[in-house]
């Protein structure tokens, strides 16, 4: 079982690495998002007072207003005044979502091209087929997250002044859990689907709400209550929140209680969905 899983995981990773264009595209997409959302739609810039207005204010207010705005932004963006930093941290979780979607699609490809049958004829444990899909997707996610993190840093992501190795590891663990859960979720959904069109439709259907009904790109505080409820059930919110907390780790310290809640949710999500994924996949692979 272990040997087979490794062999199949290696196949997936090899295929991925041998396709530099795909790898490139998978990086370009988040970069475009960071450019468009993070830089062009820079929410922070809407909350500043132009100097010519500021100079008309009474002098005691001139000092207070920027401070007040600063405070407001920190409140909204969970500890940073820079919207780009806020969304780039969230982007790391969205990247995981994109990768998980791809792995769902690859099952359908394998089925269509008969590769799945080849695996089913081989004397291997059914579980290893699913496990390899999950593993390879998790590995891909982690590599992409590292690359995007580096790119975001180059584009001006401002880490907190106390950000250290442990925080970095914390980011990776949060991303790992999210990836495990989301890949299993997509595998469970796509395991019995036979056409690409359906998978793409399903992926699109899940993609948008999962991305936007979360705190990954926009602060939840500004959303209507019903959307806040949705966001509070969305695993991406918790991963993005944990990742952001670590990245913004400042001298003020980490809000451990909040991070604990994030991780509780993420661990639960990853466990439940990988179990469901494996169970559904096994039934999905059962003979007709």
């Amino acid at each position: 079982m272990i040997g087979e899983t490794i062999a199949l995981t290696r196949r997936e990773i090899k295929k991925w690495l041998k396709n530099p264009f795909l790898l490139f595209m998978m990086l370009v997409q988040p970069v475009i998002w960071m450019g468009l959302f993070g830089k062009a739609l820079n929410l922070s810039s809407f909350v500043s007072v132009p100097p010519e207005f500021l100079s008309q204010l009474p002098s005691e207010l001139q000092a207070q207003v920027p401070d007040l705005l600063d405070q407001m932004l920190r409140e909204t963006f969970g500890g940073t005044t820079d919207y780009f930093t806020f969304m780039a941290a969230g982007m790391l979780s969205v990247v995981v979502l994109f990768t998980a979607m791809f792995s769902g699609m690859s099952v359908v490809w394998d089925r269509r091209f008969g590769f799945l049958n080849k695996l089913l004829v081989a004397p291997i444990a059914r579980g290893s087929i699913v496990l390899a899909k999950v593993l390879s997707s998790v590995i891909r996610s982690m590599i992409q997250v590292l690359l995007i993190f580096g790119l975001a840093f180059a584009f001006g992501l401002q880490v907190g002044n106390a950000f250290g190795v442990l925080d970095f590891l914390g980011v990776l663990v949060a991303v790992f859990l999210l990836s495990l859960g989301l890949t299993s979720l997509f595998l469970a959904v796509t395991m019995r689907i036979k056409s690409h069109e359906t998978v793409i439709a399903v992926a699109n259907l899940l993609n948008l709400p999962l991305t936007f009904a979360s705190n990954a790109l926009f602060p939840v505080g500004q959303m209507p209550p019903w959307l806040q409820t949705v966001a509070s059930l969305n695993p991406i919110s918790y991963a993005a929140d944990a990742v952001r907390s670590f990245i913004l780790h400042s001298n003020a310290g980490l809000d451990m209680a909040k991070i604990a809640v994030d991780f509780q949710f993420l661990i639960g999500f990853a466990l439940i969905f990988s179990l469901i994924g494996i169970l559904v996949a096994r039934t999905g692979l059962r003979k007709g």
Binding site: E4, A7, L8, I124
Partner: peptide
């Protein structure tokens, strides 16, 4: 069903792993 992205050798190696 052989994998286009891999070499003939890599395909064979994968197959040999699957059959232990």
């Amino acid at each position: 069903t052989v994998d286009d992205d891999l070499t003939g050798m890599e395909n064979m190696m994968l197959q040999s792993r699957l059959y232990h």
